[in-house]
Amino acid sequence: MTRNSELLVGLAMLGVGMGYLYMTMQLPRRGTVDATFFPYVLAWAMIGLGALQCIVTLQRGDFGARLGEKMQNVQKLTVLATLGLVALYILALRPLGFPIATILFLFAQFIVLTPTGQKPNLPLYALLSVISAAVIFMIFRYGFNLLLPAGPLTNLLP
């Protein structure tokens, strides 16, 4: 990590501590040791550690030193696409039901994660998505009595 990113981490730690302190100050007080006692201790600890991280980083001499590799754009895109797909998947779980949402999610996610230079095998992905979704749904619904949302399929299921 560069010195700048280490500094950014320190500032983020400081920010989290301050945000937590602000939220703690909104809580009602009932004496010295009450429900806010530990939150105050923790908030000040986070602020102190954030400040320490910033100070230690600023004292470091190696301005341009980089310990890790820089992320390629394709990597950033894959991470964002994965997060987006998971969020869509969770949103779709109730309205579409587990089987349909899972088939769509798996199919899209298989494509997103296919390594660079390798051609996505769409028929295989489609088959795997349907089989995995069906097997997981059946095992949990009928084997382990976990009522996963079925969406539009509810009336068709035994």
Partner: peptide, 13 residues
């Protein structure tokens, strides 16, 4: 790329 999405679904379950 095949294994991880399935793991993700199982974690959601």
């Amino acid at each position: 790329h095949i294994l991880l999405p399935i793991i993700l679904v199982l974690c959601a379950v």
